[in-house]
Amino acid sequence: MTAPAESILEVRDLVKHFPLTQGIVFKRQIGAIKAVDGVSFDLHRGETLGLVGESGCGKSTLAKLLMALERPTSGSVRVNGRDITQAKGGELKRMRRNIQMVMQDPYTSLNPRMTVGDIVGEPFEIHSDVVPKGGRRRKVQELLEVVGLNPDHINRYPHQFSGGQRQRIGIARGLALQPEIIICDEPVSALDVSIQAQVMNLLERLQNEFNLAYIFIAHDLSVVRHISDRVAVMYLGKIVELGRDREIYERPTHPYTQALLSAVPVPNPEGREQRQRIILQGDPPSPANPPSGCHFRTRCWKAQDICAQQEPLLEIRQGSDHPSACHFAEAKDVVNAP
């Protein structure tokens, strides 16, 4: 949309392996769960990067790494040029201010014993220099107003709010420290259809108002398309395709992206008998023991010998306009095709 995009987040070769242990007293490592396995991308100021992929592919682990809630096995996450994975103490605390998170479940992610004012204002306790103590209550009320909640409800408890309102509370809290980046992990999945649209509109409005950059994780691909400027598709710990929303949705080149898009039911019954579906068989393999070469090859209908031998890199290949990790990347419109 705008001129040369400025990167606010640079992720390079990020890896997170969780040790797989056996034994209760004497734990010994028998392997590793490769939750995130070499992920690189940039996030630009004010943009939304959508992140999609099947359950267990590593989306939430990636989110935690970006927020420095988990230490990576290797790789770097630069926020405004500084590597948050190496930061410690006061510097880490300062850097964390800039990346906030909105979680999936508005029912369990808020402490039921804290008032809304305490929840939204908690970041000010941790980062006590941001707003002087006397001004905090007013600041919290402002935040509630920004997300469309009644500022007079500051003393209520989470159970007195609906799911959509609780999600707004979570968003208000995420905004408290005026971050430049907000990671939304399934922010609307637990909400009813009629409430989803309200929360999506709120997120877009806040983005414009505060020039926020979002990483938007969701399993609903039409919701992701609506809000995202670019989309990254993950499979077994790796990004397999990355592009602008139209590139991913209209000209996907990776077979996994094509299968994922083609599995999404179209909310229009016209012509449903003619629709062609790519139905993937089975579940993704375990991230403890991913297939050699291309991780997707055990479910891929295009797999050749080379796919088992050589890992396809995430790069732009001939005949395509965006990076894809497939030896045989080839654009195919699966959504609008008959």
Partner: peptide
């Protein structure tokens, strides 16, 4: 309120209020 490709960038229609 279903997001539509041709209306990307616009506000989603939202049913107001709560169930």
């Amino acid at each position: 309120s279903i997001p539509r490709v041709d209306l990307k960038g616009q506000e989603l229609y939202a049913i107001k209020g709560m169930p």
